[in-house]
Nucleic acid binder design. Structure first.
Lengths: 325, 325
DNA sequence: GGCTACGATGACAACGTTGTCAGGGACACG
DNA sequence: CGTGTCCCTGACAACGTTGTCATCGTAGCC
C-alpha cells in the first residue's frame, strides 16, 4: 500500500480510501491510485485488515471425520454454500475420528480466529472448547452432541430412522433381524443401536431374536458377524451406516444367502444394484445448511438459548427391504 | 496478551517468550505466565503473528469444481494429508465450473495471503493469476492446464486412458463405438474425446463408425444420445466421466439394449453392479498428493522450471467391457 | 572494590491496515 | 477582507504480535 501511495503520489490513507470505496476522494486522484494499484498488482492484506478492524476473519472452521466420505463431502458442500451467502470461506479438516487430532485442529482454528466453528465431535470430551465458547466463538456441533459441552447441535433422527427400518422389516414378516453397527463409542452408532432395540421391542420381536454386531468393522469382521447371524436363522439385516452397508453388500455377493436388507444412510447407485437397496435416507447437504444456518445466526448476534435440531430420516423402499423371510 | 501480562505481573514481551518457548525465561516466571494464560483462556492471534513475521499464513487455498463430487472429495483428502504434514490448513471452495466465481474465489484466497494455491481451472483464462504468480504465490493447476498461464500442472492421462478403453472394446470385437463426453469446453472432456478419436483410428475403426455426443449432459440428453447411437447399431459405449457413466447406467436400466460399457473414472460400487462396470481408473487422492507435493516444494523455495506431471490411468476390467457385440 | 559476563526482563518499533482528527485550499457570504 | 463551510487530503495511533536492543541485578574473577 505504501508503494502504491508513493507511485500515485498520495498518502497511504488515500489509497486505503480508494481500496475501500470510501467517499470523498477526488475522481482524478482515485484514477491515479487505481492505475498504481493495477500496475503494482496490489492486493489488500486481509490479515492486517482483520487485525485492525477487530473481530472477523470471514472464515469458519469445519472439522469432520473424513472429507472423502460422501456423507461428509455432501455436508461440506452444504456448509460452503451457506458460508458463501454470508461472504465467508470455509477452512476444513479431517480428524479421522481421532480425539487428539480433533482437539489440535479445533484449537488451531481458534488461534486463526475463525468467526465460528462447525464440529463433528470425535471422542466424548470436548471440554477444551468451553474456553473458546466462553470467549465468544460460536460453535455448532454436527451429527453428534458435544458431550460435556453444550452448544447448538444439529443431529439426524438416528433412533427414529432405525426404528422405522425395523418396523418396515417386521411389516414384511421378519422376526429375526440382525444389526451391524459401527463402534458404539460413536454417538450415532450407539443411537442407532438404541433405535434398533427399541424398534424390535415395539415390533414385538422377542429378545434373543435381535442380533447386534457392533464395530468398528472391516469386510472380515462383517463376514464373521454375518455367518454367526445366519447360523441363528437371521432373515433380515440392517447396515448401520453407508460404509457398513456397502461392506455388507460386498460380502453378501460372495455368499448364498439373500436376506432382506436396509441400509442407514443413502448412497449413490443404491437404486441400480440388484436388488435395489432400501435405505434410511437423510440429506447430508441439508445437514450442512442447517448447521451453517445456526452458526451464522450466532455469528450475527443471536444469543437465544442453545437449540437442538433433529433432522428427519425417511425410509426409501427400493426392493432389498421388501422381501419376505 | 496484554491481559495475560498484567495478570502475571510481567511485560507483554515475556508472555510472548513463554508462548513461543523461547529460552531465557525464569522457570518461576514462566509458570506464572502459563497460569495466567490458562485462567484467561488466552490463545495467540495467528493473524497478528503472521503480520509481524511476514509471509506465511500456514494455509493453502484449494479451488475445485464441487467438493461433493467423489472425485474432488478424494482429491481434497489427498491435499489435506500432505498439507497437514507441512503444518498447513486447507481453505477450500467450489467454483461450480463458473469462471467468474472461480476468479473471485482465487483472488479472495490471494487477499488472505495463502501460502499457495491449488486450482482446478474453470474456463479458459486464468490471466488474473499472472500477477499473483509474479508476486510470488506458488500455483499448481490440477486436472486441467492453466491455459494462458504457465505453472506446475498435474494431470491425468486422459488421452491414453480413453485410447485404452477403445482398444479394449475393439479387442472384444466392437467396431461401432459411442462416446458420451462432457462439455468439450472442459479440458478433460476435450482430451478424452481426442483419445477416443485417436483410439478408434488406431483400432482401424472407420470414421463414421465412431459416435461422440458431447455434453453437458443430463439423463434426458443421455437418453436421446443413446437412442441415436442404437439407431446406428452402436454396440459399445464409453462414459466420459463418473457422472455421465452413472447417468448412462440409469438410463440403460430402462432400455432393452445391453451394450458393452466402459466408464472413465472409477466409482464406488462399480464392482457390485450387474454386470460389474469396467472402468478407466485413476486415483484422485494420489492426484491430490502429487499436486500438494509440488506446491509445497515451491513454497519451500524450489524454483526449477515448471513441470507437468501426468498420472497414469489404468483399465480395470470387471465385466461390462468384456462382452462381445 | 572494580571489572566483566551472563541471565532475565522490558521498552520500543514494526508488520499492513483503518479510524480519528486536523490541516489546507477554494468558495461563498457578510 | 474576514469568516465560515465544504471538500479533499494526510499525520498519527492503534489492532496483537515479535525482533532488536537496552537495562538491571547478580555472580565470578582478578
Amino acid at each position: 500500500m505504501n508503494d502504491v501511495a508513493r507511485l500515485a503520489g498520495v498518502s497511504i490513507k488515500t489509497v486505503s480510501r480508494v481500496v475501500n470505496d470510501e467517499p470523498g476522494v477526488h475522481e482524478q486522484t482515485a484514477r491515479q491510485v487505481l492505475a498504481a494499484i493495477e500496475s503494482l498488482g496490489f492486493r489488500r492484506n486481509m490479515g492486517a485488515r482483520n487485525l485492525r478492524q477487530g473481530v472477523t476473519t470471514a472464515t469458519v472452521g469445519l472439522l469432520l471425520e473424513d472429507v472423502s466420505n460422501p456423507f461428509y463431502s455432501g455436508l461440506t458442500r452444504g456448509v460452503e454454500e451457506v458460508a458463501r451467502q454470508f461472504g465467508r470461506r470455509v477452512l476444513s479438516a479431517s480428524s479421522d475420528e481421532d480425539p487428539v487430532q480433533a482437539r489440535e485442529l479445533a484449537l488451531d482454528f481458534c488461534a486463526r480466529r475463525v468467526d465460528g466453528l462447525l464440529i463433528v465431535p470425535a471422542g466424548r470430551e470436548q471440554g477444551y472448547l468451553a474456553a473458546e465458547i466462553r470467549a465468544g466463538t460460536p460453535v455448532v456441533f454436527i451429527d453428534r452432541p458435544g458431550g460435556d459441552v453444550t452448544a447448538d447441535t444439529v443431529l439426524m433422527d438416528n433412533v427414529g430412522g432405525t426404528m422405522m427400518a425395523v418396523a418396515h422389516l417386521a411389516g414384511h414378516g421378519h422376526r429375526r433381524i440382525g444389526f451391524l453397527g459401527d463402534d458404539p463409542e460413536i454417538f450415532t452408532a450407539a443411537e442407532r443401536l438404541r433405535g434398533f432395540r427399541r424398534g424390535c421391542a415395539r415390533a414385538g420381536i422377542e429378545r434373543g431374536a435381535e442380533f447386534a454386531a457392533m464395530g468398528p468393522h472391516d469386510e472380515h469382521s462383517i463376514g464373521s458377524a454375518l455367518r454367526a447371524m445366519f447360523d441363528r436363522s437371521v432373515t433380515a439385516l440392517i447396515g448401520g451406516n453407508n460404509r457398513i452397508t456397502i461392506g455388507l453388500l460386498r460380502v453378501l455377493a460372495g455368499m448364498p444367502e439373500r436376506p432382506a436388507l436396509i441400509g442407514f444412510d443413502d448412497f449413490e447407485l443404491a437404486d441400480l444394484l440388484d436388488p435395489p437397496v432400501t435405505v434410511i435416507a437423510h440429506d447430508a447437504k441439508a445437514l450442512g445448511h442447517a448447521a451453517a444456518g445456526r452458526l451464522f445466526a450466532r455469528i450475527q448476534g443471536d444469543d437465544s438459548p442453545h437449540r437442538d435440531l433433529v433432522l428427519p430420516a425417511r425410509l426409501v423402499p427400493r426392493g432389498s427391504g421388501e422381501v419376505a423371510p
